[in-house]
Amino acid sequence: MSHTAHIRSHRKPRRSATTSIAVRAGVASGVLGMAAAGAASASAAEPVTQTLELPTLTADLATQVAQSADATQQAAANYTLQAERDAAAANAAKQAKADLAEAKKKKAEEARKAAAERAASRSAERTTLSASTSSSASTSTSTATGSAAAVVAFVKAQIGDAYVSGGTGPNSWDCSGLVQAAFKSVGVSLPRVSQDQSTQGTQVSLSNLQPGDILYWGSAGSAYHVAVYVGDGMFVGAQNPSSGVGEHPLSYDPPTGAVRVL
Rank of each mutant, 00 (worst) to 15 (best):
D86G: 05
H3R: 11
D174F: 00
K97T: 11
A89F: 11
A120Q: 14
K105L: 13
S207F: 05
G166T: 11
A149H: 03
A258R: 03
N208C: 03
R15V: 05
D161H: 01
Q200W: 02
R14F: 10
K106W: 02
A90T: 08
R85L: 14
T51W: 08
N208R: 15
G33V: 08
V236D: 12
G231Q: 15
P241Y: 08
A116R: 01
V186G: 02
A5S: 15
A157K: 06
A35V: 15
T58S: 15
T133V: 07
C175W: 04
M34T: 13
G244A: 08
L209K: 11
A17D: 12
S68Y: 07
Q203S: 14
V151K: 04
N240V: 11
R8M: 07
T18S: 13
K113M: 14
S132M: 10
T58R: 12
L206W: 11
T127R: 10
I159H: 04
P249G: 06
A87L: 05
H225T: 13
K106A: 12
P191H: 02
V31M: 06
A66G: 13
R118I: 09
V236S: 08
S130K: 04
D161Y: 01
D232L: 02
Q82L: 14
Y79K: 03
F235M: 15
G26N: 09
A124C: 00
G231W: 14
T63N: 11
Y252C: 00
L190Q: 05
W217G: 07
S29V: 13
Y224A: 14
Q64A: 10
Q82E: 11
V226K: 08
T141I: 04
N78M: 08
S20I: 15
L57W: 01
R11C: 01
V204C: 10
D232V: 01
Q50D: 05
S198T: 00
N91W: 09
T143R: 05
T63G: 13
Q158E: 06
G246P: 03
